[in-house]
């Protein structure tokens, strides 16, 4: 019942890894996604709680395997489709010519 994000107090996790002199973002796409999400929230496409809810609805194994911004990507994709802003095909497509992507690309 409790969702996979609700991990406070769970045991079995490893030591905390600290990256010295860490940059704010590790890749351009993370910065773009961060900004995109902030804009979508500001424009009322969805709110912060709906965003958190969308992350929490990730299948547990996917949640745990995903990096922080990969979780964001999953949530933003989910919400853009659910809010009717983009179609599932649009969200799934990379370049227009390769709109159909297989599971191997996930």
């Amino acid at each position: 019942m409790s969702r996979i994000n609700d991990i406070g107090g769970m045991v079995g996790f490893s030591a905390v890894v600290v990256e010295p002199d860490e940059p704010p973002f590790h890749a351009d796409w993370e910065a773009h996604l961060h900004a995109l999400n902030a804009l979508l929230i500001r424009q009322g496409v969805y709110n912060r709680d709906e965003f958190r809810d969308a992350i929490e609805r990730m299948p547990p194994a996917e949640y745990l395997a995903a990096s922080y911004y990969e979780r964001w990507f999953a949530a933003v994709s989910t919400l853009l489709v659910e809010k009717g802003v983009l179609t599932p095909d649009e969200v799934a497509g990379g370049q227009d010519a390769t709109a159909q992507r297989g599971p191997a690309d996930e």
């Binding site: 019942m1 409790s2 969702r3 406070g8 107090g9 709680d49 929490e56």
Partner: peptide, 13 residues
């Protein structure tokens, strides 16, 4: 209560 959806009451509390 353990709600099925989003909540901000952590399980441990």
């Amino acid at each position: 209560l353990d709600p099925a959806g989003h909540t901000r009451l952590p399980r441990y509390a």
